[in-house]
Design a protein around this nucleic acid. Sequence first.
DNA 1: TCTATCTAGGACTGAAAGAGTCCTGAATCG
DNA 2: CGATTCAGGACTCTTTCAGTCCTAGATAGA
Lengths: 159, 159
Amino acid sequence: MLKLTKKADYGLIALRHLATTSEGRSASAKDISDAYRIPLPILSKVLQKLARAGLLASEQGTNGGYRLSRRAEEITTLEAIRSIDGPIILTACFTDHAGCNQSESCTVREPLRRVHEGILRLLASISIADMATDRPPQIPDEIFQLQPVRQMTPALPKA
Amino acid sequence: MLKLTKKADYGLIALRHLATTSEGRSASAKDISDAYRIPLPILSKVLQKLARAGLLASEQGTNGGYRLSRRAEEITTLEAIRSIDGPIILTACFTDHAGCNQSESCTVREPLRRVHEGILRLLASISIADMATDRPPQIPDEIFQLQPVRQMTPALPKA
DNA sequence: TCTATCTAGGACTGAAAGAGTCCTGAATCG
DNA sequence: CGATTCAGGACTCTTTCAGTCCTAGATAGA
């Protein structure tokens, strides 16, 4: 849980591929499928979703394929993931108001909402271009501290 | 996807409950189950996991129940979630080295690892005490910007 | 000592979501 | 025309979630 689907993985790989290959050149689903050993039918569907979402432009016919519809800097990982997997839902509470028995008893909704928002912002802050650079920018530690100052942050566990 | 399980939800609700009820008093699984309308057997298992993980102390017998084994400030949501659902896995790549065909082709692993780490830090930075306060501390916007400066962060979408 | 109350935990079932295959159709280039 | 490539529906298989059921120990109090 709290896991990316493989389709989202595939989509990010494909987007990164399209961002690194020479300048807006298009690549077919098969090209990418071969390069990364991704099952072609699945990758096709993923690319179709990205195209429908407007992140990719497609060209049919021989020598057709996909290319980024905007600059890699202007495509966020959040957009990509949401295009492929649908809305990101941390808990059912936010969307499913019916499922939540009573608003009074569900005391963690608001705190969780902030966690949820934090994840969204994190994903929104990373572009495909960021993923494409070999040596990505360092992330200052302070960025991840949610509270103003807090000494308790434990050493990061393995998983 | 990228979703918390209900069990994790239940666990956080229970932890918050134990943190807010008067000072280390213990509550039974049934108490909590009734208060939030959570199926008792499920909540029991969740509480057992939290106890085994050392976040809760349990007392058996009549008038037994659970209480926090440390201060609420010293229990992070990350610990809680990991105790209940097991390790948080963003993609299979990190753990399942066998599943990844070839390290060269999987070009997004390193970028994703950073996203993953960011989520872990976010969760590690929020304690049960933070969830228990009625008006939680404001989160400065800057905290969520991954890149040093970057104007592209789009308005946060609904989901 | 007996009983009600709690925790501890295994076994099982049904529903939902993920991952992947298969098949058909339509556009386009040569 | 015919190879190539996108578009997309239908279906299967597997895993995971969510939840129920049942049994076994510990403990406080009558």
